[in-house]
Amino acid sequence: MKYNFDEKIDRTGTNCLKHDGMGMYFKADDLLPLWVADMDFRTPDFIMNAIRKRAEHEVLGYTFRPDSYFQSIINWMKRRHNWDIKKEWISFSPGVVAGLTLGIETFSKPGDGVVVMPPVYFPFFDCVKGTKRKMIENPLKLENGRYTFDLEDLKSKIDENTKLLLLSNPQNPGGMAWTREELVALTDICLENKIMIISDEIHSDLIFKGNRHIPLASISEEVANNCMISMAPSKTFNVAGLSSSLVIIPDKTKFARYERTMGVGHLGMGNIFGTIAMEAAYTHGDEWLEQLLDYLWKNYNTLEDFITKHLPKVKVMKPEATYLVWLDFSAYGMKNDELMKFTIEEAKLALNDGGRFGTGGDGWLRVNVGCPKSVLEEALERLKKAFAML
């Protein structure tokens, strides 16, 4: 089946955060939204058909997850990432960020040190601060247009009270698909210092050709027993509104501890349609995903070519993964609030403020290219017209 990613779907009036929520965040509702990390594409037919079929039975009572659900996850990880996992490693969370917070609550105590590597997905900061842990910033290094780990800085900042490290793998907002060599170097330090890693791998399926996602737990048995991985079909298949994510913890003792934390809040059941969607996605999603990745890469090339030609002062970080593109506007000399004000008022665009991603994000903007090409082209024209005035 040939999927149509050029289709423009009017999402307004659906309480959609990306479109209907702009007034709350940008104080304007007449902007072109390329901010929130969901896509403007139709949720795949095999997911919607599965949901419709279940909805025909008009009792939505308590349910459990069948063996076929777990097998779909196991099969997907093997097909997409060549990673062998077991049913007894798989748990649940009502969202990847919720999983990160539950992991922090489970595997550390207030006052413990938690490492974050900015610029990074900004809810990481909320997870650490909100659980009253001590945040240890280990900023990424920008080298040759790509981020790398600053391992010497990490070693200089950790101590015996450092218990956890939060990893964005693939990295958001930069789009790095961390290599095995990079991850081994990082995990060696964490193992030596008894620092557990909680890895956000929500973008793990959105990997562009020439790159590969390395699940953290696939590196070695020792690393597997020292980590927790939080994943979801939400970014891949555009089902974020179903609030259903999975957690993978290979170590039996750590798994039991996480399950106890989940049990206290009765958070493990999830919802019927989230379970249905996840199983359908991981059972039938390969062809749709291949077509999506091809479309997203063409969108990225459209953006890169346009900016190179019309906005040469802007530096584009080439993504190895994700549908998010990180753009450096620092050559224009604007402070963060000035840059945001300019893109809102003059370009009429809703983009993500780089400053929110922490150290190293000032002067940058994050652009979501998970939209029809015509929408992206309109956004680029608006940027061109606005910055031509400077």
Rank of each mutant, 00 (worst) to 15 (best):
Y3L: 07
N4T: 07
D6H: 13
E7A: 08
E7I: 07
E7Q: 12
R11W: 15
T12Y: 13
G13A: 08
T14R: 14
C16T: 11
H19P: 01
G21S: 11
M22R: 04
G23P: 07
K27A: 14
D30M: 10
L32T: 11
L32K: 00
L34C: 14
W35K: 03
V36W: 05
D38A: 09
F41H: 05
P44K: 09
D45K: 14
D45T: 14
F46E: 10
F46Y: 11
M48Y: 05
M48C: 09
A50G: 02
A50D: 02
R54N: 02
G61C: 01
G61P: 09
Q71T: 13
S72T: 04
I74G: 01
N75S: 15
H81D: 10
W83L: 10
D84W: 08
K87L: 06
I90Y: 04
S93M: 02
P94W: 03
V97R: 10
L100V: 14
K109S: 13
P110Y: 10
G113E: 07
V115M: 04
V115E: 01
P118V: 12
P119M: 08
P123G: 10
F125I: 11
V128D: 06
K129P: 08
G130S: 08
K134H: 02
M135F: 09
P139K: 08
L140Y: 04
E143P: 04
G145L: 03
T148C: 10
E152T: 10
D153E: 11
K157W: 09
K157M: 09
E160F: 13
N169G: 09
Q171L: 04
N172K: 01
W178R: 11
W178I: 02
R180M: 13
V184N: 05
D188K: 12
D188N: 15
N193Q: 08
N193V: 06
I198G: 00
I198N: 01
D205N: 13
K209L: 13
P215W: 05
L216T: 02
L216C: 01
L216A: 04
A217G: 14
S218F: 12
S220N: 07
E221D: 15
E222V: 08
E222A: 10
V223M: 05
M228D: 00
P233Q: 14
S234F: 11
N238P: 00
L246M: 13
V247L: 03
V247G: 01
K252N: 12
A256C: 08
R257T: 01
R260M: 12
M262L: 15
M262Q: 15
G263D: 12
V264Y: 14
G265R: 12
L267C: 06
G270F: 02
I272G: 01
I272F: 00
F273K: 04
A277I: 12
A277D: 05
M278K: 06
Q291G: 13
Q291D: 15
L293P: 03
Y300G: 07
N301V: 10
T302L: 11
I307Q: 04
L311W: 00
K313G: 05
K315D: 14
Y323W: 13
W326H: 09
L327A: 06
G333K: 07
N336V: 07
D337P: 09
E338G: 12
K341F: 01
L351D: 00
N352G: 01
D353Q: 05
R356W: 04
G360W: 02
G361M: 03
D362Y: 10
G370F: 00
C371L: 09
C371T: 14
K385G: 03
A386N: 09
L390M: 13
L390Y: 04
